[in-house]
Design a protein around this nucleic acid. Structure first.
Lengths: 110, 110
DNA sequence: TTCTTATTTGGCCATATAGCCAAATAGAAA
DNA sequence: TTTCTATTTGGCTATATGGCCAAATAAGAA
């Protein structure tokens, strides 16, 4: 694989990797609804503040969210809402998987 | 976070995680064009056969690809082509990031 | 100033991952 | 049968990740 090609795939992988965590997916979905500060997100995720803060920094580094200081909180916003579209596709994969599973169970019964 | 909600996010995260690797993204893109056997993919990725085989098993476990034995090869196929749509979104994120970077560089020059 | 409150960072540990090599497996060809 | 080819699996090491706690930082409120 050529170097230039590889680095393009690496850039993409970095973004997917940033999304590939249950807590971060929750955060992404919440931020799509409205901006939130770390405190609020921490309550939603139900983990240590430091843990959530690190998750947010992963999302920020990947360019998925933006943070803005206002009043005495730091508000996080989702940057590209198209992100949510692709959750739909992920659901399709899950559905296809479930369908297969059903088929396998069926053929076992025979 | 409720248990039922968490497990849904975990299922999604598993799929994203499976995609979040440069070599696997390359494989996904190649498989979108046409089915390929391990050998061919190994050449494209440029890694050890065993490494590529493990990447394929990650994709298979996530339900992203299907394998079918035919002649003396095992052919892999992409299961949901919608996967590709969302690469477009990832590119948007990258573009937005690049744009920001430009702005920062500009403001530094002042 | 000191006391809160909000957030990030550092340290530590446990776990997961990617990579390679070597070995196992399966099937086709000789 | 042996041999070759395709693929997977096991073993190993190095590296990265997620989680918590504790400490640092920043900014407002008292």
């Amino acid at each position: 694989m050529k170097e230039s090609i590889r680095s393009r795939y690496e850039a993409r992988a970095k973004i997917l990797k940033a999304m590939a965590h249950p807590s971060r997916l929750l955060i992404i979905e919440e931020l799509q609804k409205k901006e939130r500060c770390v405190n609020e997100l921490t309550a939603m995720v139900g983990a240590d503040t430091s843990t959530v803060s690190k998750h947010l920094s992963v999302l920020r580094n990947a360019g998925l969210v933006i943070d803005e200081k206002r009043a005495n909180c730091i508000y996080y916003t989702l940057r590209c809402t198209c992100i949510l579209d692709f959750i739909g596709c992920v659901e399709d994969v899950l559905a296809a998987k479930a369908e297969d599973h059903k088929k396998i169970m069926k053929s076992c019964k025979k």
